[in-house]
Amino acid sequence: MKPYALITGASQGFGKAMALEFAQRNMNLVLVALPNSGLSELSIFIKQILIVDVHYLELDLSSIESSYKISSYLENNNLSIKYLVNNAGVLSRGFFTELDDNYILKQIEVNVTTPTLLTKLLLNNLRNNAPSGILNISSMASFFALPKKQVYGGTKAYLTSFSRSLAKELKQDGVSVTIICPGGLNTTTRLCYQNRLMGWITRQSVLNPEDAATIAVDALLKRKTMVVPGFINKCLMILDKLLPEIIKDKLAEREINKLPAST
């Protein structure tokens, strides 16, 4: 039987693009996303049109229970997981002082706790299907200091650091750990609109999720440790090392101020 790729946050944006990318490479899928997020429609479409097997689970990943439910679902249905994609994430929403306590906690649950726990719970399954791989979706925000992205950037920095260390540990088991750090992506309509309001360079750096998904899955299959997708993003990473702090702060501030008032 063909092994499965498990993707969290698969109903929209980057997760959806990756589900399609895996399906087009003829891989079976286990998709996880929030209830009423269009997951069933997507799953049925992929199953019927792209002709791969698709299981889907509608779960809220801000609860620890959900990770255990995923794990037992895989056991009960005897599904072999070859690739785990930790994609689900809660985005940033404004200044720290203005953020709701529960929002922050939820962000940490979804962005930190769940991918960590899910990796732990699925590790035996992945080991049994070696050579296999984990793909963690981080962000360029894990490298930069950005206002309005404090907790988000922090959770992504954790994920980057966690993945790099884990990669070393799991090498002997034949389980690769790949981290992808995208910059801006045209995912939700709100983000697409925000991205269109940015300065020229930032706009050029924004990638469409389907293009970033191809890069991500390629990196996973080539067992790379880390990838920053897009030429301009790669340049920004180099510039970050070269430019003095004061200029970087000015540039970051200018772009952040172009964001419309948070809703």
């Binding site: 479409f45 309509t189 709100r190 697409c192 609109y193 269109r196 389907e210």
Partner: peptide, 23 residues
């Protein structure tokens, strides 16, 4: 394969008209 009401969007918005009509 012809588009039906059940087809999820498979590619990102290719222009501002599509994007703003979706919004």
């Amino acid at each position: 394969i012809p588009i039906t009401e059940k087809q999820p969007r498979l590619a990102s918005y290719s222009n501002d008209y599509e994007l703003t009509k979706s919004m």
